[in-house]
Amino acid sequence: MKEELFVSGRNIPNIDPYLNIWHWEIPVYLFLGGLAAGIMFFAGYFYIMRKEKDMATTVKFAPFLVPFALVLGLLALFLDLKHQLYFWRLYTTIRLESPMSWGAWTLMFVTPLSMLWVASYMKEVFPKWDWKFKILEQFADLTIKYRKAMAWALMFLAVVLGVYTGILLSAFNARPLWNTSILGPLFLVSGMSTGLAAIIWMSKSKYERKVLSRIDLIFIGVELFLIIHMFMGFMAASEVQIEAAQLFLGGEFTVVFWVFIIILGLLFPATLEVLELRGFHIPIWIPSLLILIGGLLLRFVMVEAGQITRYLY
């Protein structure tokens, strides 16, 4: 049977013929959030493991990226709003059922915390740094005193932030591609992996790079595992989800997903990392850059493709 639909009396920009209200801002923000979560998690983790000296880049230097990533991410998020002057409404209420509300509040805590963490290392990283005011100096001393508590908070909030970047999408019933809770762990793991890639790129210590590469390989493995399970879930679900999966299995996102995200963004950099661990000399920026681009593309593709999938019309 052939079925044809005409929708008349309706021509809404950005919704017809298919939904397209989220543009580059959301994937960029999801990427930066994941990257920040990855860096923060490992900064906290290695501080608590008392590896501050051996893993100096992870604990001290890389976290300097985090406030910038978060502020840029928030800026992208703000640009995406259509009723911008009312953005403060996010902070007049707590909506337990809305992941976006959770995210807004998480960012409210995690952004200042990342700045405090950086402040506590300011003098170590920039020996000539002068706080100018005595009160700031005393405040910085205070942050140094509470580093351990901050490290635990960083780890916890990093996981919340990382999961939230995925759950944000899976909460939308109407988009079958997003409607899977596996996006939470998937985006968390992918964010951790991009965070590690950024730290590895910055690090000058061979030991540190070796430790981080090993962890990164585990995360890439888990990410592949989750992606395969995501597709298994789709293929065993209802028709709308099977159709959503078809976008990646022969549909318009097949090449960008399998070639650029899976092969160039995960498998190839993982191979390079293995070779590096085996003693081959590989310029470290190559796998790192590939992982970062792969992470960004994954979010672009998921956001774009998700908006095409739907129940009706």
Binding site: I12, N14, I15, D16, L19, I21, W22, D80, L81, K82, H83, Q84, L85, Y86, F87, R89, L90, S98, M100, A171, F172, N173, A174, R175, W178, Q307, R310, Y311, L312, Y313
Partner: peptide, 27 residues
């Protein structure tokens, strides 16, 4: 209208695409 920030979450969650972004910003 004056509580809406125009984030688009509700538009993404509607299976009927019944919501739209008003030119003034709110949904």
């Amino acid at each position: 209208h004056n509580e809406c920030i125009g984030c688009g979450a509700c538009i993404q969650s509607c299976p009927y695409d019944a919501r739209y972004s008003h030119p003034e910003g709110y949904v």
